[in-house]
Write a protein that binds this DNA or RNA. Structure first.
Length: 645
RNA sequence: GCCUCGGUAGCUCAGACUGGUAGAGCGUUGCCUUGGUAAUCCAGCCAAGCAGGCAAAGGUCGAGAGUUCGAUUCUCUCUCGAGGCACCA
C-alpha cells in the first residue's frame, strides 16, 4: 500500500479534522456529504460581494455562502464533474477524457472529441446527467494495480499520460459510479443522487496541461447545487454581478469607448472617464512627490539599441509593435519606461550620496498584447502606467520596499480597495528559463522582499515561475467582479539590469557599485485601475472622483436664471457641475441624475429662489435637505472632496 | 495566438434555420394641445417612474469576395466583440 498522505478538512462550523487521503476516501466522503447537504458548498462570490460599496442582493449571496465550505465543494463539485464525464461518454463513446476538477464556482471537464460540442449539446448532456443523478448510483473507491489501470485506460491517452507522469502509487485510485471509472484521488460524495441540480454553463477551448504547444481540448464548465432554489439564487447573483462589469458601466456612464476604427485594446477616454483619470493622475502625483519621488517625462519611442541593452528585446519582441525605420535606425514604440529612466539615472547619479533616487512618470506605453487577451480596460494595448523606478544601494533596498508598501497601503486605503492578495513571484530555478545571473543574487533579492513584507505586515504567497526576467517581485493580485484575476500593483526588485546597462555609483569605499532598481507601479495602469474602481463602486464614484459632482435641476422654466447663477457659483469654487434645465418633471430629472450616479442633486424652485437657498439631495439617501444656503453647501462639499469621501 | 460563439438604427433587441435588400421599444428632432410641475409627511434609490397626440430623421443589416436571376440571410476571408485557454516586462 502506498504511503498515506494526510489531508485536513475544515467544515462549515469551523471544526477541522485530518484524514488519511486515498485509503479512507470513502470515509471522508461520508463526513463531508452529511455536512454538505445541510449547509455545504462554497462559492467565492462572497469575496467579491463583501466589500462592494453598494451591495446588491447580499441576502441571496449570504444564503449561498452559508451553504458552502471550501473543502466540501471540492468533493461535491468534483463528483458532478465525474457525472459530466460519464454523460459525455454515454452520448459520444469515442470521446477521450482529460481532467475534471472542482473550481471556485463549479467544475469543468476537458474532452477530446472529433466534432466540437455545440451549444445545443449542453442541453443533451444535461439531460443525460440528470438521468445519472436520478439513478442515484453509489460512488465506490477502487484501487487497481498499475497493470489493471493501464488496461482500463488503454483507450484514454490523456489519462494514461497522468498515470505515467503523475501517479506514483502502485495501487492506483479510481472512483467508480455505475459502469464509469475515473482515475481520481480526490474525495467524492456518496452517490450521484446527492448532487442535486446541475447546469452546464459554457464550452471553451483549453490546452492539455496548460501548454499551448500541445493540442487543445474542449472544456465544458458547469455548476451544481443540492436544489433548484440555490441554483436560481446563484444565477441571479451572476446577473447582478454582470451589471457591475466595467465595460457595461463604462458605456452607460459614457466613460470610455473602443472604436472598431481605432483598433482593439486602444481606449478612447470620453470626457467623463478622462475626468476620473485626471483626478487620479493628480492624486498620485501629489502623493508620490510627498513620498520623495521626482517626476520626469520621456518620449514614447526609442531606438532598438536601448531595449537590446536593457535585455527586454529578446523576451518581448513578439509582444511589441513592430519597429519603424527612420534614417537607417530602428525605433520601437515603447512598451515600458524602465530604460528611459535608466538614462536619466546616468545623468543624475555619481555617488552613493545621490541615492536613493525615485523617478516617477505617468508613462504611456504600447504593448501588442495577444489578440485574445484584450479585456475592456483591464488588458489594453495602449495604456498609461503609474510607473516609478527607485534606485538604491543594497542596504537601502529593504527600507525602500517597505516605503513602497506603505504608499500602496495609503492609496488602497483611500480607494477602499480590499480583497487583494500578495504574490511573491519567484523564478523557476529548475526550468532555467527567463532568469539569468547568480542564483545567490536572486535569493538575496527574494529575502529582501520577504523581510520587508514581514516588517510591513503583509502576507506573501510564494509562487514559482512568475518572476520578471530581471528579478523577483511582489504582485498584488485582485479579482474582478466576474472572478477574473489580474495583477493591479507590483514591486519588482531588479538585480540584473543595472549591471547590464552600466548603471553605477561610487560607494563609501570609493568603489564602483551597481544600484538595486526597484520597479513599482502602485495603480498599475490607470486603465486597469479605473476598471477596478468602476466595478468596486458599481459606477457610483465617491465625490472626489465623480465626473459630475453636482447636478443642478430647475423646477420650472421660471427658475432657470437663478439656477444658472448657482451653477456659476459652484464652477467658481472648482466643483464639477452639470445643469439640467430641460422642460421635464422634477421626478424625471431626478431619476436621470440618479442613473448617472451623480453624488449631489440640487433642485431650485420658486421657494429656493425666494430664499436664496438650494434643495440638496445626496446620492444614496432618501431625504432631501431644504433651505440650504448655497455658500454652506459649497463649503460642505469642498470639505468632503478634500477628505476624499 | 488557439477553441467556441456573436456583430441588425445613438441604446436594448426581434427577423435570417425555410434567400426576394428590414422591424419594435427607448432616445433624438419638429409641430399641435397643455402653461404647469413640489420629492418638504409617507414612499422610492433593484424594478417601475418621463403630460398627451402627430410626424420626421436615423441602417450600403461589421468589411470584402464567392454561390445565385437575386444575399442582411448560404459559403469563405478579414475585422471587431464575448466566454475560456495560453500570454502578461
Amino acid at each position: 500500500m502506498a504511503k498515506l498522505e494526510k489531508v485536513k478538512l475544515t467544515f462549515p462550523d469551523g471544526t477541522s479534522k485530518e484524514y488519511a487521503k486515498g485509503i479512507t476516501g470513502l470515509e471522508i466522503t461520508k463526513q463531508i456529504s452529511q455536512k454538505l447537504l445541510k449547509e455545504a458548498l462554497v462559492i467565492k462570490i462572497n469575496d467579491r460581494l463583501q466589500d462592494l460599496a453598494d451591495p446588491i442582493n447580499q441576502d441571496a449571496a449570504i444564503k449561498i455562502l452559508k451553504f458552502v465550505d471550501p473543502e466540501g465543494k471540492l468533493a461535491y463539485w468534483h463528483s458532478a464533474s465525474h457525472v459530466l464525464a460519464d454523460a459525455v461518454k454515454r452520448l459520444w463513446p469515442d470521446t477521450k477524457l482529460g481532467i475534471g476538477p472542482a473550481i471556485d464556482d463549479g467544475f469543468y471537464y476537458d474532452f477530446d472529441k472529433k466534432e466540437p460540442f455545440a451549444e445545443a449539446d449542453l442541453k443533451k448532456i444535461e439531460e443525460q446527467m440528470k438521468k445519472i443523478i436520478k439513478d442515484d448510483l453509489k460512488y465506490e473507491h477502487v484501487f487497481l494495480s498499475r497493470k489493471e489501470a493501464e488496461k482500463l485506460l488503454a483507450k484514454e491517452p490523456f489519462k494514461l499520460d497522468i498515470l505515467k507522469n503523475d501517479v506514483k502509487e502502485n495501487k492506483v485510485s479510481f472512483h467508480k459510479h455505475g459502469k464509469f471509472y475515473d482515475l481520481c484521488n480526490n474525495p467524492v460524495v456518496q452517490s450521484t443522487g446527492q448532487i442535486g441540480v446541475v447546469k452546464l454553463l459554457s464550452i471553451a477551448g483549453a490546452y492539455w496541461r496548460g501548454d499551448s504547444n500541445k493540442g487543445q481540448l474542449q472544456r465544458i464548465y458547469g455548476i451544481s447545487f443540492p436544489s433548484q432554489k440555490e441554483l436560481d439564487e446563484f444565477l441571479k447573483i451572476q446577473v447582478e454581478l454582470e451589471k457591475r462589469d466595467h465595460r457595461k458601466i463604462g458605456k452607460q456612464l459614457k466613460l470610455f469607448h473602443f472604436a472598431e476604427e481605432v483598433g482593439p485594446g486602444l481606449p478612447l477616454w470620453l470626457p467623463n472617464g478622462e475626468t476620473v483619470r485626471q483626478v487620479l493622475l493628480k492624486y498620485m502625483r501629489d502623493l508620490e512627490i510627498k513620498y520623495g519621488y521626482k517626476y520626469v517625462s520621456t518620449p514614447h519611442i526609442t531606438k532598438s539599441a536601448l531595449y537590446l541593452a536593457s535585455g527586454h528585446l529578446p523576451y518581448y519582441k513578439d509582444d511589441m509593435y513592430p519597429p519603424m525605420k527612420i534614417d537607417n535606425e530602428e525605433y520601437y514604440l515603447r512598451p515600458m519606461n524602465c530604460p528611459h529612466h535608466h538614462m536619466i539615472y546616468k545623468q543624475l547619479v555619481t555617488s552613493y550620496r545621490d541615492l536613493p533616487l525615485r523617478l516617477a512618470e505617468a508613462g504611456t506605453l504600447y504593448r501588442k498584447e495577444a489578440s485574445g487577451a484584450a479585456y475592456g480596460l483591464m488588458r489594453v494595448r495602449g495604456m498609461t502606467q503609474n510607473d516609478s523606478h527607485n534606485y538604491c544601494t543594497r542596504v537601502q533596498t529593504k527600507s525602500e520596499i517597505i516605503r513602497v508598501i506603505d504608499l500602496f497601503k495609503e492609496v488602497y486605503g483611500a480607494m477602499g480597495i480590499k480583497n487583494v492578495w500578495f504574490r511573491l513571484s519567484l523564478p523557476d530555478f529548475k526550468a532555467k528559463t527567463k532568469f539569468g545571473g547568480d542564483i545567490h543574487e536572486w535569493e538575496w533579492a527574494a529575502q529582501q522582499i520577504r523581510s520587508a513584507a514581514k516588517d510591513a505586515k503583509i502576507e506573501l504567497r510564494e509562487v514559482v515561475g512568475e518572476a520578471a526576467f530581471y528579478g523577483p517581485k511582489i504582485d498584488v493580485q485582485i479579482k474582478n467582479v466576474l472572478g477574473r484575476e489580474e495583477s493591479i500593483a507590483t514591486v519588482q526588485v531588479d538585480i540584473m539590469v543595472a549591471k547590464r546597462m552600466g548603471l553605477g555609483f561610487v560607494n563609501e569605499k570609493n568603489e564602483i557599485e551597481n544600484p538595486v532598481i526597484i520597479h513599482r507601479a502602485i495603480l498599475g495602469s490607470y486603465e486597469r485601475f479605473i476598471a477596478f474602481l468602476i466595478e468596486n463602486f458599481a459606477g457610483a464614484f465617491p465625490l472626489w472622483l465623480a465626473p459630475v459632482q453636482v447636478k443642478i435641476l430647475s423646477f420650472t422654466d421660471r427658475n432657470q436664471k437663478f439656477a444658472e447663477k448657482v451653477e456659476q457659483q459652484l464652477r467658481d469654487a472648482n466643483i464639477r457641475v452639470e445643469p439640467d434645465y430641460s422642460n421635464n418633471t422634477v421626478d424625471y430629472k431626478v431619476r436621470a441624475a440618479e442613473l448617472e450616479k451623480v453624488p449631489y442633486i440640487l433642485v431650485i424652485g420658486d421657494k429656493e429662489e425666494e430664499r436664496g437657498t438650494v434643495a440638496v439631495r445626496k446620492r444614496g439617501t432618501a431625504k432631501v435637505q431644504f433651505g440650504v444656503k448655497t455658500d454652506a453647501f459649497i463649503k460642505q462639499i469642498k470639505e468632503e472632496i478634500d477628505k476624499k469621501l
